[in-house]
Amino acid sequence: MKNKIVQSVWVFGVFTIALLNGGIAYSAVKVGLVLDRGGKDDQSFNSSAYRGLKKAEAELKAEVKTVEAPDDNSFEALQRAFAEKKMDLIIAVGFSQKDAVIKTAKRFPEQKFVLIDADAGLSNVQSAMFEEHEGSFLAGVAAAKHSKTKVIGFIGGMDIPLVKRFLLGYESGAKAVDPSIKVLSNTIGITGEAWANPAKAKELTLAQIQQKADVIYHVSGNSGSGVFDACAQKKVLAIGVDSNQNRLRPGTILTSMMKNIDRVVFDAIKSVQDKKFQGGLVRYGLKSGGVELAFDEHNKPIFDTSAKKLIEEYQAKIIAGKLSVPDYYVTSKRK
């Protein structure tokens, strides 16, 4: 009899522990992040997504796993591996993963995905698109307000639609302030190497400065350090991109057009945890804080207060829908 009691206490104890363990294991959201070839140290969108994931790991106690795709053919295999591990959420970063996500999401219709920077058009995929043109518009306003020569510059990585979208927003922002302003624009290269070629970026920046440009906006990934070098050397202003680059060169970097992928990644993981996941196309613009200009202690001394006020006015107008910034993805199709 005594044995039986001891036994049942034991069984009860083991059960409770098992239940507790099970309970804890179930409450953690399991997230798989598939980065594209750039990898987590690209100082651009992959890095940003990785930051968001790490934040979720620390604050939401999410169980996270990251893989970096070695080539464009491996996306599907990596996503499928995560799906087979029954992850609660799979996050695929970069437009180049679009086709693979469509295939995997159709094969695993119960699996939740987030696709950054492209529209998969499926209900189990949250397609997060950023309105880069809106943020670039404000960058253009900032550039125009700070330019004394009325010539501003733009350095893009490659001549691709995404970069043109930044450029068109930037141009229209600058022209909204002063229609006579001149915008110089160059792209660095024709292959992926263009995003990691600071030497060429510096050369192009120096050439633009020679043509009197005194504020230069770069959309060139890792090549941007060359733009900052040249601007610091010639004492003109630069505008950073993707993440807050203000602290890289205080006094030279006027502001940064941030694309808050980290925030989107974090929010998506949180939404899965709160069982509020939203599929389909979600646009992150100025309104939702997906893109914004960076203001901090590093650029405060050089940023003109009247310019900041004007930017806030434009921002309010865009958010209220009173001003629509031309979007290259829309305008290029009309042709």
């Binding site: 796993k65 990251t66 893989v67 970096e68 795709a69 070695p70 491996s74 295999a77 990596l78 591996a81 995560f82 591990k85």
Partner: peptide
């Protein structure tokens, strides 16, 4: 085979 490394291990990369 190397695709599985980052999935299954902590320190191995592509």
């Amino acid at each position: 085979g190397s695709l599985a490394l980052e999935l299954e291990t902590e320190k191995m990369t592509r």
